[in-house]
């Protein structure tokens, strides 16, 4: 699983030693160029990798000339397709739940009453980076038993940090004077939140969601460990059977899924900007 650092994260010099703020970033022209470049590079890479996988898969002669073990592990209808579906289902639901929990929580933690505990939450969130996904997954297994439901709960806990962090950072970085102006025009607090703060914070929140999604796709690779299925099964079969072809097909499929969804996330990030930003 990729514990992807939120892409927006570089930092202003002044914040150096502040772990919480280390997450906050100014988007320099470099990063902008780099991201535009990634946006173009990714589809090329994805198509190339997909072609490689396709030809490689064909060359293996699954179901015909390949060894029984390989044929059975790589069978599309009974193995790869259902695993892919499971994989995406897990990633989808956990990402959705993360959004449903983290965005409102982030909003709540930036309201004036509780604002003070915000930095503390961020600090804890940041030091959680060293938390091993593997360990977390097994702990939830011990608590909740086997199955996809357990996987989803573990993933939500694990991937909530980037969305929470970016929601708070995004809302906090909205210019005070913009808010004052809104209030001055007679908007209520709820109206300023819905019409000014949230729309302006959308790009940052979307970046966090993209990170969470990538984490979830990555962690879904480990779901097989606790009976949750997913493409991790194929990788693991390759390891267990000592069959490189199985290993490679599984790994490349996982990489393809991750790269594709990351690219979709990047597109969303690029086009979900409020006009005029």
């Amino acid at each position: 699983m990729s514990e992807s650092v939120a892409p927006v994260i570089t930092k202003r010099r002044a914040d150096q030693d502040d772990a919480a703020k280390a997450a906050v970033v100014s988007v320099t022209s470099t990063t902008r160029l780099w991201r535009r470049f990634s946006l173009l590079l990714a589809p090329v890479l994805i198509v190339a990798l997909a072609l490689v996988l396709w030809f490689y898969y064909q060359s293996l002669g699954v179901g015909t000339t390949a060894q029984i073990q390989v044929s059975s592990a790589l069978d599309w209808d009974t193995k790869l397709r259902p695993q892919l579906t499971q994989h995406l289902t897990i990633a989808f639901w956990s990402t959705l739940l993360v959004i449903a929990i983290a965005v409102p929580l982030g909003v709540l933690l930036t309201r004036s009453g509780v604002r003070k505990i915000g930095p503390a939450v961020l600090t804890v969130a940041n030091s959680g980076q060293a938390l091993p996904a593997y360990g977390l997954l097994i702990i939830f297994l011990a608590l909740l038993g086997q199955g996809a439901r357990t996987v989803i709960v573990a993933l939500v806990v694990y991937a909530i940090l980037p969305v929470l962090r970016n929601t708070m950072v995004g809302l906090d970085s909205v210019d005070r004077s913009t808010l004052e102006a809104g209030r001055g025009m007679g908007m209520t607090r709820l109206q300023t939140l819905l019409r000014i703060e949230l729309p302006l914070a959308v790009p940052v929140i979307v970046a966090g969601i993209r990170t969470a999604m990538i984490i979830n796709i990555g962690m879904a690779t480990l779901a097989f460990l606790i009976g949750g299925g997913g493409l991790g099964i194929t990788i693991n079969s390759g390891l267990k059977l000592n069959q490189d072809p199985v290993l490679l097909v599984g790994a490349i499929m996982v990489a393809l899924v991750a790269l594709t969804f990351d690219w979709l996330g990047a597109l969303a990030e690029r086009f979900l900007h409020p006009r005029g930003l």
Binding site: E3, W34, I214, I217, G218, T221, I235, V254, A255
Partner: peptide
Amino acid sequence: KAIALAISGIFLTIPALALFAL
């Protein structure tokens, strides 16, 4: 610079078990 950053960003996107396995 853009190429180097884009490629190292792609590494970070690939799930760990898959990259380990590769």
